[in-house]
Each structure stands twice: as C-alpha cells, then as structure tokens.
Simulated assay, not measured.
Amino acid sequence: MKTILWATLTANGNYAQSSPENPPKKEALDDFATQAKTAGNFIVGRRTFERMLEDGGGGASPFADIDIVVVSRNGAEIPGVTVAGSPQEALNYLQQKGHQTALIGAGADIHNSFLGHGLVDEVIFNVAPVMEGKGLNLVIDKDNYQYKHVQLLDCKPLGSGVVQLRYALER
C-alpha cells in the first residue's frame, strides 16, 4: 500500500502550528479534503482529530464517506471512526479494507512515528506564507543525525501564498 504523509510547514521549515492568530489556509485545508477523498481515507492522531471535531462547526462533514483511522495508544473508542494502537495497525486496517493508498494527515507526533518506522512513500508539504519563532520539526530519526534523499514529484502554488511540494521517499 502506498502511504502519503500530508503536512503544512512554515516558510522557515517548522511544522506549522495553527492557532486563532494563525489559522490554517483555506487552500491547504481544501487540498487535504481532496487528497482524503481521492485516497478514501485518512489517518490522524487523537488530539488532532479532537481539534478537527471542535473546529467542524456542526456543518456537513467533507469526510462523511471516508474511512478515518485515529491512532491512539490509550485505546479509547471514538464513535464513527476506527481506533488503531500503532501506525502499522492503522495501515493494516486500511489494507484489509482494500485501500491502495493511505493518507496520513495527523499531528507532528504521529507523522514522526510513521517517518521513524520507514512507513512513508511520499510526502506532501504545503508551505504556508508565515514564519514561526519556535516550532516542531518532522524527523526521520529523533535519536540520530541522518539524511534521507527524496525525489521531487511536483511543485505547484495552491493560492494565498501556499506552495505545495510533493516528494517520493525511498523505503
């Protein structure tokens, strides 16, 4: 199964942290919805999923017919979604459901877990037109200093200053 990690970064390379003062760009959110519909699924961390529910506003969900897998170590049940205890368990579930692609649209911890376990085939980075002073990073190995070469597959503007970069990773 092909796995695609989707994330928004700041112009200075940090993992973008959204807040009321710095909300996510509509163009990036629309792209995530399109990517999720194309894959038919997405994997997300529990805290990120809870924020998505809070920010949903009670309207019709763009994810109504999509398999959502929440990765959570505490094993709590969440109505309407599948809960997996690990990244590999999440991928196994989606593969058993017949999905050819898994979209990982999580939070920094879950993204880093997938990257650290070598479970990512492609990354989609949406670079937002903002710089942060202190931020989180996406890492392939939190304990060692190493490199992983990537191949640029696509680069395109999404609007409002957001640029999307798509890279292939070797597994």
Rank of each mutant, 00 (worst) to 15 (best):
I4D: 01
I4M: 05
L5Y: 06
G13P: 07
Y15L: 14
Q17L: 10
Q17S: 13
K26H: 07
E27R: 05
D30I: 03
D30P: 00
D30K: 07
A36F: 12
T38M: 14
A39C: 13
F42L: 08
I43E: 01
V44R: 05
R51K: 10
M52I: 11
M52A: 09
L53T: 08
G57Y: 04
G59Y: 07
S61V: 06
F63C: 01
F63Y: 08
A64V: 06
I66C: 07
D67V: 11
D67M: 10
V71A: 07
S72F: 00
N74Y: 03
E77F: 10
G80H: 02
T82C: 05
E89L: 06
A90P: 01
N92R: 15
Q95V: 08
Q96F: 00
T101G: 08
A106V: 06
G107H: 02
A108R: 15
D109K: 15
H111D: 04
H111A: 03
S113H: 12
G118V: 02
G118L: 07
N126E: 11
A128E: 12
V130A: 09
G133N: 14
I140H: 08
D141G: 02
K142D: 03
Y147F: 13
K148G: 12
K148C: 14
H149F: 13
K156H: 11
G159Y: 10
Q164D: 03
A168E: 02
A168W: 01
R171T: 03
R171V: 05
